[in-house]
Design a binder for these strands. Structure first.
Lengths: 245, 245
DNA sequence: GTGCAAGCAAGTGTATACAGATGAACTCAA
DNA sequence: TTGAGTTCATCTGTATACACTTGCTTGCAC
C-alpha cells in the first residue's frame, strides 16, 4: 500500500501558522473561495497523482496547504461522500476497487449513459446536435492521445447535455471520476489506434441515431459502445493486476 | 417558503455548553458514534418533517442538539453532497425540486432499477430468490398503507441485492431519498387500493422473470413498472402543485 | 409616512484548544 | 533475542475563539 500523502512538501514548517501571503501563492493556486481544497484534493486523486491506497491525513494536508484542519476535513468529508476516499483508523484512504467493483461501476454507467443517449435522441435541440457534431469532428481531426481522451470525454458530456437530464449527468460525472482513478492502468489499452477508430465509428453511429431521433437505436448503440469499452478496461485491469503479482 | 428549523426546542439555554449527560439523553436518541447527526438530520428531511424549502442554520441546529457547530456542519456538508440540501446565503435549505427535476430523477431510477432487475435475473442466488418471494408474500398479506409502503420498498431493496451491484444499490438509495422528500404529496395517489394490486401484479411478473433467469423480461417489466409509478407520482405532484396555487 | 444610513445581532469561514484514543517505539526481564 | 508492558507522539472528534460579512432595525432628516 502506497503511503504517500501528496506531492513534495514546500519545506518543513512547524511554526503555528504564518499567514504569509507570498507563501500561500507559492504553494497553491488557491482561488480563495470556500471549498477550493475539495477541488484540489479531488484533482490530485482523479489525476492519479494520489493513487488508490494513498493515505490522506488531515493534519499533514493542512500543513501542506498551510490551512487548518477544518477546511481539509470538510474537503475529505465531501470526497468520502463522492466515493473517492474512505475512512481509515487514521485518516482517509483513496478507495481501492476490485475488478468486480470496477465492473459494477461500468454496469451502472452503461445503464445511465444509454438512458442519456435515448433521452438525447428524443430531446436534443439543433444546438445540441451542432455541438455534438463539432466535438465529434474535432476528435476525428486529432492525433495526440491525451487530447483524444479529453475530446472523447467532452463528446460524452455533450451527449448528456443533449439528454437534458442533470441528475443523470451528475451521477455520470461521479462515476467517471471513480473510474478515472484507474486510468493510468487502463489508458494503454484504450489508447490503441484501432480502438480509437472504433470509438469514432461507434460515436458516429450514436450521433446518427440522435440526429434521426431514433431513441431505440441510440440506446442500443450506446450499450454496445460502453460494453466494449468496459471489456477493454477490464481486460487491461486484469493484465496490470496479473503484472502486479 | 417554510422557515422552520426543526421540532420544538427543549428550552432556552444560553449557557456556554453544559455537558449534562441527562440532558443529552433527554433531547436526543444520540448513539454517540461520529456522524450520528447526519442520520438524524437526514431522517428529519426524508420523513418530510423538514420539507423542501426548510432553512437549516448550523447555529440553531447545534443549540437544538446541544453540540457545537462543527459536527452539524459536517452533517450538512454530507447532506449537500447527497443532493438533499443546498447552500443558501445564510445556512442551508432543503432542496426544492421542480416537477421536471422529479421526472429526471425518475428517469435515472428507471435506468438503474431496470439494470438491477436484469442483473438479478442473471446473478440471483437461490437465497436471493427466497428472500424476494418472502417479502413479496408479506406484502400481499398486508393491509396497512404505511406498512405496505415499507414492504414495497424492501422488495425493491431485495431485488437490488439480488442484482449484486452495490454501486447501483447505493445510487438508488440516494435517489430514493430525494424522492421520499415528496412522499407526503405523492402518497395519496400511490396508496390507492387499485394501484397496490397493480404493484403486486407487476412485482409478481418481475419476480417470475428473475426466477426463470429471463433478463430481458425482468428489465422490460421493471421499466414498465417504474414508468407507471413515475406517471402516478408526476400526476399527483401536478395536482398538489395546482392545489397549492 | 418615506428613504437612507449607522449600528448591531447573528451568521460564516477558519484557526486553535483540548481531552481522549491509538499505534509505534522503547525498555527490560527472561 | 524476544516478548510483554509502558511511554509517547500524534491523530481524532468536538468545542471554542475570532475576525469578517450581512441583512435587519432603528432613528432621523425630509
Amino acid at each position: 500500500m502506497t503511503v504517500v500523502t501528496g506531492g513534495p512538501r514546500p519545506q518543513e514548517d512547524h511554526s503555528p501558522r504564518e499567514r504569509t501571503r507570498e507563501e500561500d501563492v507559492a504553494t497553491s493556486q488557491d482561488d480563495g473561495h470556500p471549498g477550493s481544497h475539495y477541488n484540489r484534493i479531488r484533482q490530485s486523486i482523479v489525476s492519479g497523482q494520489a493513487g488508490p491506497g494513498t493515505v490522506l491525513i488531515p493534519t499533514v494536508l493542512s500543513t501542506q496547504y498551510n490551512v487548518s484542519r477544518t477546511p481539509v476535513r470538510e474537503a475529505l468529508i465531501r470526497l468520502e461522500q463522492d466515493g473517492l476516499v474512505e475512512r481509515a483508523t487514521r485518516g482517509y484512504v483513496v478507495r481501492t476497487r476490485t475488478p468486480e467493483e470496477i465492473l459494477e461501476i461500468c454496469e451502472a454507467r452503461i445503464a445511465l449513459e444509454s438512458s442519456a443517449a435515448q433521452a438525447a435522441a428524443i430531446r436534443r435541440t439543433e444546438l445540441d446536435l451542432a455541438r455534438l457534431v463539432h466535438v465529434h469532428e474535432s476528435t476525428a481531426a486529432t492525433k495526440d492521445p491525451a487530447e483524444l481522451r479529453e475530446l472523447n470525454h467532452l463528446w460524452h458530456v455533450a451527449l448528456r447535455e443533449a439528454g437534458h437530464n442533470t441528475t443523470i449527468a451528475e451521477l455520470m460525472d461521479r462515476l467517471d471520476a471513480q473510474l478515472k482513478v484507474y486510468d493510468s492502468h487502463t489508458a494503454p489499452a484504450t489508447d490503441l489506434p484501432d480502438n480509437l477508430s472504433l470509438i469514432l465509428e461507434e460515436h458516429a453511429g450514436i450521433l446518427d441515431a440522435v440526429r434521426r431521433r431514433d431513441a431505440g437505436a441510440a440506446r442500443d448503440r450506446m450499450i454496445a459502445h460502453q460494453s466494449r469499452t468496459r471489456d477493454l478496461r477490464i481486460g487491461a485491469l486484469a493484465r496490470s493486476g496479473r503484472a502486479a503479482h
